[in-house]
Each structure stands twice: as structure tokens, then as C-alpha cells.
Design a protein around this nucleic acid. Structure first.
Length: 207
DNA sequence: CACTAGATGCTCT
DNA sequence: GAGCATCTAGTGA
């Protein structure tokens, strides 16, 4: 939780956060690099994300319409969409755009800024740069889980704040999304160049 | 480091 | 039943 007086105290209101995520998902995704999420005692700087749109994006969970799993994507922006991947790992998305226009950004990797001991308690004995490398590892490090789906980024268990103004913005790279068999060449994966917390690219064997 | 194989169980057809 | 928005351990260079 942010402590008063620290540089991590909230800078944006709920309305400002909602407006940030109300934009087109492919614009929001690269803007998230360098911003921070907090859950429990773990704080993370985002280093790798992927954009998923709706009806125009065959790789998106919302492509084939609303289901019980993806319902949150169809709601207002600034919410958390959590789903179970491969029946084993939680993955977390931030809902973008607006009501009825489903889109979200998948959080793929981050650098743990504080709470290393808590993150390691969830993840086991791995080096710092691997604590939150990969979508499943990221949620594990943060302690994010399924029941958190639908909560807001300003009043829920997982909070988000933009990059500190003084933060030096590293170079952003983009490329195809990891592991998708449809729209496998759409370059909607974004990461910070040269960062060792970024996961490695794997193309779907079906693509 | 690069690459591969197999476990895993939920979601949707 | 098919297909996963994945991970780790294992191999070999």
C-alpha cells in the first residue's frame, strides 16, 4: 500500500485512471511500460505487455463474443480481468476502451521494485529478474488470483499508477504476441529494450 | 544460451 | 474432445 509522503503515493484520481484506459488498446499498451502496479506488499514496474482487442482481433478472448469468463472485458475500463491459463496459471489484464468495446492489455512481465521477500515466498528461490518474468509468474509474484477479476485499479486489491514524471523512459520495442495461433504476426507485444525481466518470444506451433 | 517435450485442467464447441 | 494469451526441467552446444 502506498505510504503518505513517499514518491509512490497516488498521483492520479479514479477518473484520471479510467480516462487513461478508455483509449484504444494499442495506444494504452506501450504507455503502460514503466508504470507501476501494487498488490499486497509487492510493487512492480511493468516491462512487457500485450494488447488484445475485441471483434477485430482473432487472438482476443472477446473475439467470439461475451462469455462468463471474459465478461469483464465488455465492461468499463480500468478494471482487472483475471483468467486461468492452461488450467494452472493466473494471468492478469487491464481492461481498456469502453463499455461494449472489449479490449485489454495482458501484463507479461515486470521488475520487482519492493516486496522481494513476499514475491519470493510465492515464487520460490529464483533470481530477482525472474520473479515476474512471464504472465503466470507475474501474477504469482504479486499474489493476484481469479477472485480479483472485475475489481478497479484504484479501489481493488491491485492498484495502478502512472510512471513517475522523473522516470527516464527506456526505448520501447514491439513485435508479435507470444503463443497466439491466430493473428500471429500482429505486432502488439511491447517491451522495454534490453531489459532482463522480459520473457522470451515463442511462436505458437500452430501459427 | 537455444530448443524441446510434457504436465496441467479449464473453457468453449 | 480440442485447444489453449504457460511453465519448468531436460538436453545439447
Amino acid at each position: 500500500m502506498p505510504e503518505p509522503g513517499s514518491r509512490h503515493e497516488p498521483r492520479w484520481s479514479a477518473a484520471e485512471i479510467e480516462a487513461f484506459f478508455a483509449r484504444p488498446v494499442a495506444e494504452v499498451a506501450p504507455d503502460l511500460l514503466g508504470s507501476e502496479v501494487v498488490c499486497g506488499h509487492v510493487r512492480l514496474l511493468l516491462t512487457e505487455v500485450e494488447a488484445y482487442a475485441g471483434l477485430a482481433d482473432p487472438a482476443s478472448h472477446s473475439y467470439r463474443g461475451r462469455t462468463s469468463r471474459n465478461a469483464v472485458m465488455f465492461g468499463p475500463p480500468g478494471r482487472v480481468y483475471v483468467y486461468l491459463s492452461y488450467g494452472v496459471h493466473w494471468a492478469v489484464n487491464l481492461v481498456c476502451q469502453g463499455d461494449g468495446d472489449p479490449a485489454a492489455v495482458l501484463l507479461r512481465a515486470g521488475r520487482v521494485l519492493s516486496g522481494h521477500d513476499r514475491a519470493r515466498a510465492h515464487r520460490g528461490d529464483v533470481p530477482d529478474h525472474r520473479l515476474a518474468r512471464g504472465p503466470g509468474n507475474l501474477t504469482s509474484a504479486l499474489g493476484v488470483n481469479g477472485p480479483m477479476t472485475g475489481t478497479t485499479l484504484w479501489s481493488g486489491p491491485m492498484r495502478w499508477q502512472p510512471s513517475p514524471r522523473e522516470a527516464a523512459v527506456a526505448e520501447v520495442r514491439s513485435g508479435p504476441r507470444v503463443g497466439v495461433s491466430l493473428a500471429a504476426d500482429v505486432e502488439w507485444r511491447f517491451w522495454l529494450a534490453g531489459d532482463d525481466t522480459v520473457s522470451s518470444y515463442r511462436r505458437s506451433t500452430r501459427a
